[in-house]
């Protein structure tokens, strides 16, 4: 199918984009990489009056260091994450997560900010933001807001942005260089949305877990912080941790549902498995680090 007609602007600055969103009074849709929006437009599931294209805004690109955090510009493309030196070194779990998004051809257009703003509950990046306690920066004509990832997701594809707000960047708080990334997902085919996934990072200090940031995806209406697991892990010595026991408890945080791909029960069963095996691998990596 073809999209319904719409107006189109491609501003060159964030201020112009915010003005366009404000003028549209809620009738606008932002296009970043377009890898989700274009199908919705083509299927006429989305029929905006005006599409605001943010691809020409140079300020939205790039990665920078801010005190205590790495800030990723909203328009950083997913393929750029894969080869970005700073991200590979300081935020390897983000790189790992992006490897599992869609396909080569969609990662060439898809963006970090687009995926984070969209908030598909089974997607990798929203969960990564929740796991690592990232902050989402939103701009509008009335100013800038910093929204913690935990407060950002309200439901499937629902977030706490106002209609005139634009996601401009995502700040990931610093993790020490020696942190251990943790990532595991199960999908029917490569590139499909995960049926079940877990993502995050651990820090091990003198044989003990000193910090943990973990989140589930595909396990409920939003990405879900694995708070129980985090609580059970922090302060424990590596030898004292039994991944299976923690997985059994950790699953209580999730709220999976039945759909055509898998039952809630299946998701819980697999969730425990992949959690335990990802944790086992992370602990092993911690012993040898």
């Amino acid at each position: 199918m073809k999209p319904a007609p719409f107006d189109y602007v491609a501003p060159a600055t964030i201020d112009e984009a915010c003005a366009a969103l404000a003028d549209a009074g809620g009738g606008a849709t932002v296009i970043a990489g377009g890898q989700t929006l274009m199908p919705l437009l083509n299927l006429r599931m989305s029929q905006p009056f005006i599409v605001v294209d943010i691809n020409n805004i140079a300020e939205l690109k790039g990665v920078s260091r801010t005190p205590g955090a790495i800030r990723v510009g909203a328009m950083l493309r997913q393929y750029e994450v894969l080869t970005h030196e700073t991200l590979q070194r300081d935020l390897p779990v983000l790189v790992q997560a992006v490897q599992h998004i869609g396909h080569h051809q969609t990662r060439n257009r898809g963006t970090v900010g687009g995926s984070i703003a969209l908030g598909e509950p089974a997607a990798e990046l929203p969960a990564t933001a929740v796991a690592l306690n990232a902050t989402i920066e939103a701009r509008s004509v009335s100013g800038t807001r910093q929204i913690s990832a935990a407060d950002f997701y309200l439901g499937p594809y629902m977030n706490s942005l106002q209609p005139d707000e634009l996601v401009t960047g995502i700040s990931f708080p610093d993790w020490p260089r020696n942190h251990i990334p943790l990532f595991r997902e199960l999908a029917q085919r490569p590139g499909d949305f995960a049926l079940v996934g877990i993502v995050g990072a651990l820090v091990i200090d003198a044989g003990k877990i000193s910090r943990a940031g973990l989140a589930w995806f595909g396990m409920g209406p939003t990405p879900i912080k694995a708070s129980t697991a985090e609580r059970m892990l922090v302060g424990q010595t590596l030898e004292s941790i039994d991944p299976q026991t923690i997985a059994e408890e950790a699953i209580a945080d999730t709220a999976p549902f039945d759909d055509q791909h898998a039952s809630a029960e299946y998701r819980r069963t697999v969730g425990k498995r992949i959690f335990a095996s990802a944790l086992r691998d992370a602990l092993k990596a911690g012993e040898t680090a």
Binding site: Y8, A10, I31, G34, Q35, M38, P39, N42, V51, D53, N55, Y79, H103, H104, Q105, T106, N108, R109
Partner: peptide, 21 residues
């Protein structure tokens, strides 16, 4: 993926990009 073309050196799905872009 049938509509894949190369845009500025990168393989992309041409049904997922607007011509104006």
């Amino acid at each position: 993926g049938a509509c894949t073309v190369i845009v500025d050196g990168l393989a992309v799905r041409s049904c997922l990009m607007l011509a104006v872009q």
